[in-house]
Write a protein that binds this DNA or RNA. Structure first.
Lengths: 210, 210
DNA sequence: CAGTGTGAACAGTTTCACAGCA
DNA sequence: TGCTGTGAAACTGTTCACACTG
């Protein structure tokens, strides 16, 4: 089956595997699909299938070499190069995201922060001075890949439009609204409230099915 | 096709529809699948299919009555009753989540906050006094549905175990680790860094396919 | 006649069972 | 012997075209 297109659902699981490989303490050089399965909560055959999409990577009877596997997943996900990101929106959620520490391990560097509140502009958030959103255009030619937006829903679209003009190719959207972008730009939306809203469906009401 | 099991992917989209119906300004009583499609970024036939799973709801030639639709989606998602939630972990992310305002519209009320940092215990976060995680057990019989955890990965499992003992039926997990729970408890995990890690895969490297 | 509802074709994903190899 | 790699089957979800109806 060598060199197949990788299904989106497999791509969704790759960061999960990578996270486990990065953070688990490994006394061994190799890990089997079964052992990895226990750590990530995915079936072993699903893991093997996922890995099989990028060629024969494991050793029969042994498992997968951990370093090789990390390297391979990073390459597939294009995390083998540094990605520069900017944050727009220095409110509670934006601040939490910026200070989150945990992006760097995947090769992301948040190099600038923007807000439209005059009281915040010039103040520091972590090591970064907050700039006015009106100076977003200065980002052109600074090789920024990724925009992270954490602004109110009603200004999300205009914020994204400005970001797209600076040349970002991907946007992580924490704003609670649908935004439209040119086809060449990829948006991933995380709406915490919406995810929470999906939870009760799966909870038994009193006793009975969900 | 009346009274079919609702596919998980449809359930995933329901909060999206509900969000649009709640926040859009409606001059009309009804909305067509096409108009809703423009607002949420989902095809009109997908929307009609999703709605068809819960019986005939629309009026041919007109569309869907907005109030009726909201009510119906809320009922399906079990958002028609108030859900009491607690937060464990009053760090940056936890605080942002608590102060987020936007859960209440879906019928959630965060009634208590816990942390294990002695410096934080007794201080207020919003209107809520932070309590010690060691007093989590006092929640039993207080009708708490949902636990939200935003603690470091290495204490996530023990935090969840304590929460499960208090009787929560659903957990929203912001900790970057896989947690295991009894079958009767549903976990949804949001790992911001992992989502960000998935973004570059879909971005063109220089020019070319993603 | 505008817009819903849906069977049927199609596409994508997961599961299984087991051959193949270190 | 233990664990990978993978076709094929089973399952799940999406798209389409159009009959139907207020």
């Amino acid at each position: 089956m060598r060199y197949h297109r990788i299904p989106d659902e497999s791509v969704r699981r790759l960061p999960l595997y990578l996270r486990a490989l990065l953070f688990a303490t490994h006394d061994r050089e190799s890990i089997s699909s079964g052992a990895l399965a226990d750590v990530v909560g995915v079936n072993s055959w699903q893991i093997r299938k996922d890995f099989s999409y990028f060629g024969e990577l494991g050793t029969r009877g042994v498992g997968y070499n951990i370093e090789k596997l990390k390297k391979h997943i990073r390459k597939i996900l294009k995390l083998d190069v540094l990605h520069k990101a900017v944050l727009v929106g220095a409110g509670k959620l934006g601040s939490a995201v910026l200070l989150h520490r945990g992006f760097s391990v995947y090769g992301f560097d948040i190099t600038a922060v923007f807000d439209n509140d005059p009281k915040k502009i010039g103040r520091k958030l972590g090591d970064t001075v907050i700039q006015s959103v009106s100076s977003l255009h200065t980002l052109k030619r600074r090789n920024i890949d990724v925009g992270i937006i954490a602004v109110p829903g009603d200004v999300a679209q205009q914020t994204v439009d400005a970001l797209v003009k600076t040349g970002v190719k991907g946007i992580l959207n924490f704003s609670p609204s649908y935004i439209s972008v040119p086809k060449k730009v990829k948006v991933l939306t995380i709406d915490i409230a919406m995810d929470l809203a999906r939870l009760p469906y799966y909870m038994p009401r009193n006793h009975g099915a969900g």
